[in-house]
Design a protein around this nucleic acid. Structure first.
Lengths: 191, 191
DNA sequence: GCCATAAAGCTAACCCTATTAGCCAACGCC
DNA sequence: GGCGTTGGCTAATAGGGTTAGCTTTATGGC
């Protein structure tokens, strides 16, 4: 009986592909094992269990997203960088409907790769905000605002929450333009 | 053997309480049945199944949220109304960590109560935006932006996504202030 | 008051997923 | 070529959801 020759990387990579096809909720060890041509319990040689698998998938997706955000913002500044990054963000979420929700898991402190990926993603946002002259507490608030707006939009869109016929692209464009305006006069009012 | 005397309302209400305690993901028919002092299959006399239960829970939570948003905005206008509504939104999500995520399910078209609840919630937002002079497509875009920002913030907060020590209340306040600024000059740029 | 019927509960059985234990065989190294 | 490591397997357990079919309670018409 020849071996399939799996390792953790391959298992997680296939899990990511499967998640994108069927959705993160429907990602099941049974289906994954079937995909890999292996019996279900064999997966336990490579991952600790279902939860650990998703955590690893989160690390992978976060790293991918961080890279795409960084690339998008490279060589741009201010509103240009913001728009490019926002587009990259939404684009990733739409191309990877299964991986994207996994990126919202908080990184496992025991997984250095995961932690680094998370820092890279936040760092990319920070860099864009620096272009608006934001640092310190203001940058923290602005980062949270940006993440909230992008994540909120993208997840409502994925959930089918936008019923009306009005073009979603236009709405996203407006949202990002609104963020640009806000960041220009950040912090918006005195506490 | 005396009857417990359940009905769908009671089952869904208890499901909502349980979800708030253990999380929507951990809401299980088995646990719910135990709570209600009934065997698991008995629940099928009142709900079609696990998925239908969550959909009913979504209808309940959406109705509650719509009411709270409407109440918060009543008697206020402009930035005042926006802030009151945003506070009510986050407050609901924090008081009801299990119900809140259920509100993001798209309403079941076959459930008139659910549909109405969804319309009331969106209507409350629309009313606030009318205070900014927004109507038509602009209001659609602004509604999506507002929902995205609030939902994004609240769900990142619930997921523990805000690691830094910076006060979360302050960040939320800034986010809402930023929305206020944006809505004042909406639409932000020409398409 | 009585009985027919609908509704509310039950048990039993089945399927699917995750997990653990323990066995066996393939691969890699010396 | 032996031999340890390790990647795969089967079997078994537990938990959740679902369906079928039975029993008993409440209820309403007469």
């Amino acid at each position: 009986m020849p071996r399939v020759g799996l390792n953790q990387r391959a298992v997680v990579a296939e899990a990511a592909r499967l998640a994108d096809e069927v959705g993160l909720q429907q990602l099941t060890l049974a289906a994954l094992a079937g995909r890999l041509g292996v019996a279900l319990p064999s997966l336990y040689k490579h991952v600790r269990g279902a939860d650990a698998l998703i955590q690893k998938l989160s690390a992978l997706a976060t790293a991918e997203l961080a890279t795409e955000l960084t690339t998008a913002a490279a060589g741009r500044a201010g509103g240009d960088a913001l728009r490019a990054m926002a587009d990259a963000y939404r684009d990733y979420a739409r191309r990877h409907p299964g991986r994207y929700p996994a990126t919202q898991r908080v990184p496992d402190p025991a997984d250095p790769e995961h932690v680094v990926a998370g820092e890279r993603a936040v760092g990319a946002i920070y860099a864009v905000l620096r272009g608006y002259g934001l640092t310190g507490d203001d940058a923290v608030d602005a980062t949270r605002a940006l993440r909230s707006a992008l994540h909120g939009f993208v997840s409502l869109e994925a959930a089918g929450g936008f019923g009306l016929p009005r073009e979603v692209d236009r709405s996203y464009h407006q949202l990002v333009a609104g963020l640009d305006v806000s960041f220009r006069s950040w912090p918006v009012d005195a506490p």
